[in-house]
Design a protein around this nucleic acid. Structure first.
Lengths: 175, 175
DNA sequence: AAAAAACATGCACTCAGTGTAATATAATAA
DNA sequence: TTATTATATTACACTGAGTGCATGTTTTTT
């Protein structure tokens, strides 16, 4: 982390990082598949947390409400300062940035599986895929806003705002 | 393309690709920033097409309908066979896959800008970000399904199904 | 035809990532 | 404790992506 802050992501070589950590270059690659993984591993397995939360959630008024509340609970457990710091470092590398986006797709997949267990009717599949996409997407939008604002508002609030915007934009009052 | 099919993405070296194309390795990197870009450039600038379509679209009943119809028009112009072929090649490399996901974020950004021009009210910003996210997300889900199915149904149909699922999942009948 | 701009290439270099084999360290059985 | 056996660490050598720089080769422009 110190090296990344001092020299940037590309500026710090694996050699330097390994030496600073008191191990050899080769041993570094025994613990991390790539240099990117240093930052990616910090992100943690949000997808699995999210899915687990959905599985243990009580019956809800709607799938959307259940997923929204699960998202709020998961994110309540993540310190905002860490989010800001990790995000700042990740901006340093395009390939890290790309893999981060790719990780959202995995989260979506994990979340979909969990949702699917609760509503297994085949004809609902597409709708539930959409739900998972929206949930992960809203969470991503919230974290983008949160980082953009530099943590001005608490993450919970921003996240709730994102989910509320979904409701507001798509819930048309039918006759 | 031939080399990628024969030897896989990682199996084909830039050296070989350049030679097969009748140029030098160094010249290759004059045209492509990276090996990944060979496949990524095939994807084309879908985001810009999408945004342009939104800009030229006639007034619509709702932002959602406008964006949905724009998506349908853009995708009508893309040959399904190409989509399948490109997708098959892209599966060969994790880093290409990652950059592809990252490109969806850029599409979202471009789309958001275009939508924003039509509804510039500041208080709508979050809702329109959500709309762009959902539109790009639905398009992505549709193309995932389309590729999964190997092109069994026409892309238009799958895409329409994805947007319909959004409506179905979120349009609750209020009293 | 001469000058300038754009394109192509060769060369040398850095660095990420991998396979392999040797060596050290820790864990376990005797 | 000692011998044995995993397991962790390392050195070494190699491939291949990507870059900077200098030089050569076309096109354009004047």
């Amino acid at each position: 982390m110190r090296l990344f802050i001092e020299k940037g992501f590309d500026g710090a070589t694996v050699e330097e990082i390994a030496t600073a950590a008191g191990i050899s270059r080769r041993t570094f690659f025994h613990y991390f598949e790539s240099k990117d993984d240093i930052l990616l591993s910090l992100q943690g397995d949000v997808g699995k947390l999210f899915a687990a939360e959905v599985r243990r959630a009580p019956p809800a008024t709607s799938p959307f409400a259940l997923v929204r509340d699960a998202a709020l609970r998961v994110c309540a457990s993540i310190p905002g300062d860490d989010m800001l710091a990790i995000d700042r470092l990740m901006r340093g590398s395009a390939s890290v940035q790309a893999r981060k986006q790719a990780s959202y797709r995995q989260q979506e997949e994990a979340l979909f599986s969990a949702i699917r267990e609760r509503w297994p009717e085949p004809e609902r599949e597409t709708r539930l895929r959409v739900l998972a996409m929206v949930a992960v997407g809203a969470t991503r939008l919230a974290s983008e806003t949160f980082n953009q604002e530099g943590g001005a508002r608490p993450f919970d609030e921003v996240l709730r705002g994102a989910f509320d915007a979904v409701t507001a934009e798509f819930t048309t009052t039918a006759p």
